[in-house]
Design a protein around this nucleic acid. Sequence first.
DNA 1: ATAAAAATTTAGGCAAATCTAAAAATGATT
DNA 2: AATCATTTTTAGATTTGCCTAAATTTTTAT
Lengths: 219, 219
Amino acid sequence: MTKLSLTEENYLKAIYFIGGTSQLVNTNAIAERLNTKAATVTDMLRKLKQKDLIEYQPYKGTRLKSEGKIKAIAILRKHRLWETFLVEKLAFGWEEVHEIAEQLEHIQSTELTERLSAFLGFPEFDPHGDPIPSKEGIFPKRDNITLDRVKPDSAVMVQGVKDSSTEFLNYIAKLGIQLGDQIAVKSVEEFDRSLLVEHKNQQYRLSALAAANLYIKEL
Amino acid sequence: MTKLSLTEENYLKAIYFIGGTSQLVNTNAIAERLNTKAATVTDMLRKLKQKDLIEYQPYKGTRLKSEGKIKAIAILRKHRLWETFLVEKLAFGWEEVHEIAEQLEHIQSTELTERLSAFLGFPEFDPHGDPIPSKEGIFPKRDNITLDRVKPDSAVMVQGVKDSSTEFLNYIAKLGIQLGDQIAVKSVEEFDRSLLVEHKNQQYRLSALAAANLYIKEL
DNA sequence: ATAAAAATTTAGGCAAATCTAAAAATGATT
DNA sequence: AATCATTTTTAGATTTGCCTAAATTTTTAT
């Protein structure tokens, strides 16, 4: 129930993204993700432990405790709701929204979060296709098939991206791939498992890596 | 162009609210508004002066310089746009929104601000009836205020009608409303934004639609 | 198994924003 | 014009989040 500082929230979020809700997370991994130094992370881990938000044994790593998980998931919920708002209501491109959502996710008001969710029609997935946890912290189910799992000659619809780095988003933006698009897989190259696909009446080749980062639904 | 800290922004805003764009503002007045101590304010004033955002002579008070004015007005613009969003899109009551808007006003993204404004239909007044400065920092003229933009407990004079259909003119004639009449707004109903007004020693209720079509001047 | 490498923590400091208490400047009053 | 009250600033600390450099622990490799 204690109100966390913006920095504390970002640490919880980082631990959550690296290790999820159960895996041990290294100090250096956190430092790298937050562009800070290991020594700084150690300081903060001691503080978060004292607030009972994380488990932490010096030299052994850290993981979220239940209070920490709740906080981290609540921030994620806000982040994805705001991204949905930015894309669906303000017509931002889905590559542009992350930075702004990073700020908006720290706004403190559960009332606001819930009204925003209602305004957006209680969305379960954000514009990247990532699941939006409910206010109780439950994630909606989804078929997690990626494009690289698909047999040749199948038609699929793009449901989301796994890798939401700017690089990847830019890449697929360049190809013109958007949520809801249909893609037909023509063939798969034995050698490097790259795919020959047909998309918007064009044929081109997608690397295995790119395909592995596109969530799809088979049609 | 320099990015200001949240605290610096709040100081500029406070100076703006107390002294507007030209009046000298006392250290104590700022301390009171920000619930802080005079000594703290002195420190910050020295810092803001160094950044050339304010004029400041020890013991003499402070006032905004042009850069400071621009920043303060930009924050005000964001605050009022967000309030409009919260009330009009998320159906908050207009008493509840201030605290949330205080947080949202610090989100850094001009792109976001401008798209929000567009999404709201380029509003010129917020739900309290306060003017929303343009992105160039220009305040809209108050001439075109309609009765629905007015705060409760304000007295106004009828200056004209927006809708000049026979139906509307007949309606206000039936109520006995004429140009130059004084109307006092007693309260605004949350539910449908209808107004309880006092006019010619009578109290009655006006719909939000009727109020939106009456141009008024605040007294 | 032991030394080298890597990861992590400790120690000591710095900047921002805050505070209290004391000193200084201003202004108001006789 | 001298004093007293008020306002403001200065001085010295504190907290938070961050840093570098040195010390320590863990892991890896000979």
